[in-house]
Structure formats: C-alpha cells, structure tokens
Amino acid sequence: MSSSNSGFNERTVRFIYLLTFIFLVLSGFGQMPIFKRYYIADIPGFGWLAQFYVTHAIHYIFASVLIGLSCYVVLDHILDREKDRRITKTGYAKSVMLIGLMGTGGFMVYKNISGVFFPHNMIIALDIVHLGLCMILMFYSFYTVIAKKSWVRHPINDILQKME
C-alpha cells in the first residue's frame, strides 16, 4: 500500500468523522428545546435546529454514517496489518465513549419503534447516559485537539524523532 493512499484514506476518514460528529452533536442537542429559546435557530441556516422531526431524521442519518464509519475503521485496522500504527490511550478512551454512545443510541432507536416498550427508568437512564457521554466526548475531543493527542501513533515516527 502506498503511503499517499494511506494518507488520503486517513484524511478522508477524519473529515467524515468530523462532519458526522458536528451534525450529531447539533442534531442531538436539538432534541432539547433550547436552540429556539436561545436564538440560535434564528441564525440564517440554523432554523432546522428548532424543527424536531428534522433534527430527529438528521441524527438518525449521521448515526448511520458513524456506525458505518466505525465498522470501516475497525475492519480496515484489522485487515491492513502492514500499516505501522498503534492505537493510543486517547484512541481507546474515545472508542469506549463512541461504543457507549452507539449502544445507548441503538437502544433509543429501538425504543422509538411502534409497539416497543422499555421500563421508564431505563429510558430516563438511557437519555442521561447518552447525553453525558456526548458531553464527555465533546470536551475530551476539544482537549485532545488542543493537546495534539491522536487516536493512533506510528512507532516509526518515534524512532525517527529519537534519531534526530
């Protein structure tokens, strides 16, 4: 595999992840009636944030993208063994949060289907855990961007740095 191909793949994955993350956070917070109250939905181009059925559909669409992207990244990592990269602690931490978000989200999607009944305390717990994980992942992502902590590291780069 050529390095340019690998670089293109990683940049594409990062771009799709960033786009998905932004829309999931916006549409996720849009499930609460806050954007209209705080004038954000009045900003041109943001009116959709106050339309609950629109944010609901957009959240589902980008959740599908996130699930597909996650499956792609995990399988690509397993199949492409020659790639010299290791998952960092940051990567593992974010993965756990994303798995938690996808798990709780999956239950909530199932709950919304007609004829599906969950215990009410479970629904409340799912709502709170889903929101909590999102908040933690959001703030942790800000931190990792500022601290320049990556999901993966390339040991060869560490060796090259030491040689320099």
């Binding site: 559909a57 599908s64 699930i67 499956c71």
Partner: peptide
C-alpha cells in the same frame, strides 16, 4: 420517517464492512 431511517441504519455496518473489504 424516523422508523424507516432506523431500518436503513441496519445496513450501515454492512456498508462499512463492504468498504473496508
């Protein structure tokens, strides 16, 4: 609409796996 999208969501892992392969 939401529930149709939920059904489509089941295809997302398959799409990811197909892309990786």
């Amino acid at each position: 609409t939401g529930n149709n999208l939920a059904r489509a969501m089941l295809l997302a892992p398959l799409a990811g796996v197909a892309a990786a392969f």
